[in-house]
Simulated assay, not measured.
Amino acid sequence: MLVLAIDTSTPTVTTGVAEVIPGDGIVVRAERAVDTPRGHAEILTTLILDCLTEAGVARADLDAVVVGCGPGPFTGLRVGMATAAAFADALGLPLHGVCSLDAIASDAATTGAGRVLVVTDARRREVYWALYGPDGRLAGPAVDTPADLIEWLRGEQAPDVTVGSPDHVRLIGAQHVDAATSPTTAGLVATARPSVESWATPEPVVPLYLRRPDAVATADRAR
């Protein structure tokens, strides 16, 4: 099965083409990851087409589209989800949404870590986070200040390692491993794999904003 993966939940725009081999692994045929905090819309479609060309895959060859649903800033996240929805609709493909933090945790799981905390930049001096154990997500996704998160993590909640945004990993001060700092093609597809392989109709894709957008209509500002 050939899967197109897209994520714009972080400053890194990620897209790629992966082959899911039933009963075996996931082979990434092509991937692009570009750090561009405010240029998601300008480059995403070009990166997708570059990946299809490098992988030697025509759009008609794709079997599914996987998209990271956040949490992430409103504008950047919307770019990736709208683009993924447009590709899936135009090609008649199922669209599978996954939590972007789950995708990062999936990559970290390959390091053999136990309890894994994933943190990404939520701006406004806050972080998006989720805590994972060997059997899956234990808490989150949520958005908090680093100080509030550190306080919550004391005691039994303390992770073995922290991955994600390097600046926030250092701020939290936990041990980190050499793992992905943003969702990867392999992580996105691995997270969606049970749904993709089932060929079942996926649930509607819903963005995980976790808070209101920065942009507010003029009439609502005073309120």
Rank of each mutant, 00 (worst) to 15 (best):
A5P: 08
L44A: 12
V189L: 02
V57N: 08
G72S: 06
G92H: 04
P37S: 11
D121A: 03
T12L: 02
T12F: 04
A88K: 12
T36E: 03
G56F: 08
A58W: 01
G70T: 06
G92F: 04
V98Y: 12
Y209M: 13
M1G: 12
D89P: 00
L131I: 13
A84P: 09
I43E: 01
V34R: 08
T12P: 00
V169L: 08
A86H: 05
L44W: 11
I21E: 10
P166R: 00
G16P: 13
V143G: 03
G133T: 12
D7E: 11
P141F: 01
G140M: 07
D148A: 13
V67F: 00
G133A: 09
D107S: 09
L188T: 12
P37A: 13
P204F: 03
T201K: 14
P166Q: 05
L93A: 05
Q175Y: 00
A84E: 13
L210C: 10
A200E: 12
E197N: 06
L95Y: 06
A90H: 08
D24H: 13
P202E: 09
G80F: 05
Y128V: 11
T46E: 14
L52R: 13
A186M: 02
L47K: 08
P159F: 07
F74I: 15
S165V: 05
V163I: 10
G16C: 08
A88W: 12
P213G: 04
V127P: 08
E151M: 03
L47S: 06
R125W: 01
D148Y: 02
A55H: 08
G112I: 15
G76L: 07
R59P: 03
I150Q: 14
H176W: 13
T46H: 11
D89W: 10
V119K: 11
G92R: 05
T45G: 02
L153A: 09
V119W: 02
P159C: 05
Y128N: 05
I43Y: 01
D102N: 13
R137D: 06
V205Q: 05
T184G: 04
E151R: 15
W152C: 07
P204R: 03
S198L: 04
V98H: 03
V34Y: 06
R29E: 12
A222T: 15
A142E: 15
L188V: 10
T218E: 10
I6S: 03
D61Q: 12
A5W: 13
M81W: 04
E203P: 03
W199H: 15
G23S: 14
V20P: 07
T218D: 09
A64L: 09
